[in-house]
Amino acid sequence: MRGLLFSDIPKNAGEMASYFSKKMDIDIISIHDESVLKYGASKVYFYDSGFSDNLSDAIIKLNDKNKYDFIFISSTVLGREIAGILSARTGMKCLTEIFYFDNNDKIITKRLFYGGKTVMEESSDFHLFTVAPGISSADTLEKISESENLQLQKSIYEIKSRLDKNSGGEDISDAKIIVSIGRGVGSKENIQKIEPLVDILHAKLAGSRPVCLDYKWLSEDQQVGLSGKKVRPDFYIALGISGQIQHIAGIRGAKTVIAINKDKTAPIFDECDYGIVDDLFSVVDKLVNELKK
C-alpha cells in the first residue's frame, strides 16, 4: 500500500506521517521545511509557495505517475480547498476530517459528527481523505527521507495584500497542560487572576470561541473548538466554560478534563472527568495555594 500526504504546515505533516507510515509506505508534499525529512516518508516533495490550483495540479500529476492507493490531505484552510478541487477534477469521493484510519481487511475510518457530539465509524471504498489535526504526535526518526523540489505551474491567483489576523498568543497545539477560559471569567481584566494557576502548572492559556473571537480577550491562535484548535493535552482545565458541542469537539483528544463552573447545569459537566461547582476564582486561589506548598 502507498499513500500520498499533503500538508502546508510541517507539524501537521509530521503528525500524519507518524500515523500513516505505520500502515503503508508514504510520500509527503510539504512546504519547504527540513524537519519533514525526519518523519519516515519514502520521499518528500517540497514546494516554496503555492495555491490551491497549482498544488492540486502537482498532486494529480504525482498520483498519475506513482498510482497511490490513498491520498491524505491535512485539514487546513488550504488543504480543504485542495481536497475539494481534487474531488471535482478526478471524480474521487472525499471523506473529511478523519482521525482514525484502518485498512487491514476493509477501509474503516472514524470522525466526529454532530458538531463533535458523537463519533462516526464508517466503512467505505474512498481513496481521498482530509485528516483532522492532532491525529498523532509527530515522532522523528534517524533516517532522512529522499527529497525533491516540486516545480509548480503558474497560479491563476496573485496576492495583492495581506491582513494580519488577531494572533500573537502562545502555540497551544503541543501543550501538555492547558488552562482554558470562557465567558464565565467575566472580563479581560480578570484573566490576571487566572495567570498564577497557568504559571505554577507551566501550562498554556487558551479560550473558547467567544473569548477569542467575539470579545478578543485572547488571540485567535488560542481558541479551542470546532473552528479553532483541536488539542490533545494530558490535562485540560476549563474555567467558566459552558461546554457547547463546538467546544467539546476541540478537546476530544484530552486525556483528563477538569471543569470548574458555578452553573451546575453547564454541559461541560457531562463531558469532564472531574467537575467542581463553585466560583472559579475561589477555586483557582485555593489550587494555587495548595500547589505552592
Rank of each mutant, 00 (worst) to 15 (best):
R89K: 15
A206L: 11
L141G: 02
T140G: 08
K154T: 15
I191G: 14
D171S: 15
D164H: 06
K188R: 15
S145Q: 11
K188L: 01
G169C: 13
D174P: 00
F101K: 07
S137E: 14
A206C: 10
L163E: 12
L152I: 06
V179K: 05
I107D: 03
G186D: 12
L197W: 08
K160S: 11
G84Y: 03
V179G: 14
E158F: 05
K154G: 09
I144R: 06
I178D: 01
Q192D: 14
E148D: 08
I172G: 06
N166A: 11
F126L: 07
T118S: 11
T96N: 09
G115V: 10
E170H: 03
F113K: 08
S145Y: 07
L141C: 11
Q153G: 06
R162K: 13
I107W: 01
N190C: 10
L150W: 02
L150F: 06
A203W: 00
Y157A: 01
Y157M: 04
G91S: 05
A132Q: 14
F126Q: 11
G134L: 15
I85Q: 07
T96D: 03
E158I: 04
A88T: 07
A132K: 15
V131H: 03
G184V: 10
I194M: 05
I156N: 05
S180P: 07
K165M: 07
A206G: 14
N149S: 07
L95N: 10
K193T: 10
D125T: 13
G169H: 02
I156V: 15
N149V: 13
P196N: 10
Q153V: 07
I144G: 00
I156S: 10
S167W: 06
D125A: 14
E158K: 14
S137A: 10
E195Y: 08
T109A: 08
T96Y: 09
V119R: 04
L163K: 07
E189I: 01
K176L: 13
K93V: 13
D174C: 05
K193P: 02
V119F: 03
N190R: 00
Q153A: 06
G207Y: 01
I200H: 01
V185I: 15
S136Y: 10
E170S: 12
H202N: 15
S155T: 15
